[in-house]
């Protein structure tokens, strides 16, 4: 059984994003980029299924310019068997990525696609669901637990009111939440080995997908800031402020 894991290279989660001075976008030049944390969890889930003998191959895929190959190297170092790079210099929006993924799924015929539930740059939370729609597959978002069975997968999902368990017939799309697993770190020997592994290159044209952006970002700016608060020195002082000044209790 083959598992496809799409990964995205994003601004490292420890770095606070800033708008460019002219408002045309987010300043990324010279900043550390990493794999999207939810995609690392997806990759870890796939690798564990392979280690448990339930999957035979883990294929990582990334879409974007040449820099995304760095994320694919990380995926290979973590344990992906193969890496596919869909090369494009366009701004790739979720619907376009979902269409690229669909085209790759039709070529690679994986039984399962495991994606991060959202990328922490655009926070869209759309691509996995869109892919499931385009393939007419079942979808389980926000996965906290994955149990593979014969021809099916049971997924515990994190919901607004607790959890629910979905039973999906395979093939299916799963998107990962935070508590599915704790991703491993790549070891140095594996990082070295990953550098030598081939990365297969595809293009949107080869895949027959038009990736022209549909949404237009008009500007990017800092959100309204909260005015600075004060420190109080006791519980009594806090309560007095909350009662008399903020009038909230």
């Amino acid at each position: 059984m083959k598992i496809l894991v799409p990964v995205k290279r994003v601004l490292d989660y420890n770095i606070k994003a800033r708008a460019k001075a002219d408002g045309s976008g987010v300043a990324l030049a010279g900043l550390k980029m990493s794999l999207n944390p939810f995609d690392e969890i997806a990759l870890e889930a796939a690798i564990r299924l392979k280690e448990a003998g339930q999957a035979t191959e883990v294929v990582a895929l990334s879409c974007g310019d040449a820099a995304v190959q760095e994320g694919l190297r990380t995926a290979l170092a973590l344990g992906a068997d193969r890496a596919l790079w869909v090369s494009s210099s366009e701004e790739l929006q979720p619907l376009a990525v979902a269409k690229l993924l669909r085209a790759v799924v039709l070529r690679e015929a994986p039984t399962l696609v495991i994606c991060g539930k959202q990328a922490i740059d655009d926070d869209a939370n759309q691509t996995g669901q869109m892919l499931a729609a385009l393939l007419n597959w079942g979808q389980a978002t926000n996965a906290a637990e994955i149990q593979l069975g014969e021809g099916r997968v049971d997924v515990v999902r994190e919901t607004d009111g607790g959890t629910e368990t979905l039973r999906l017939l395979l093939p299916a799309v799963i998107t990962t939440d935070l508590r599915l697993n704790e991703p491993r770190y790549a070891t140095l020997p594996n990082i070295m080995k990953a550098r030598k592994k081939p990365i297969e290159t595809l293009t949107p044209e080869e895949l027959g997908v038009t990736v022209t952006p549909r949404l237009k970002t008009l500007r990017v700016q800092e959100p309204p800031q909260r005015p600075a608060g004060i420190k109080v020195d006791s519980v009594a002082a806090l309560l007095a402020r909350l009662k008399n000044e903020a009038k909230v209790i």
Binding site: L11, K16, A17, R18, A19, V26, I120, D121, D122, D123, R214, L215, K216, T217, L218, R219, V220, Q221, E222, P223
Partner: peptide
């Protein structure tokens, strides 16, 4: 045209949706 937070709300994007 809509405003939405991106990057965990560190910045807000104003987005035009022509659909």
């Amino acid at each position: 045209t809509f405003v939405r937070p991106i990057y965990a709300g560190s910045v807000w994007a104003t987005v035009c949706c022509p659909e």
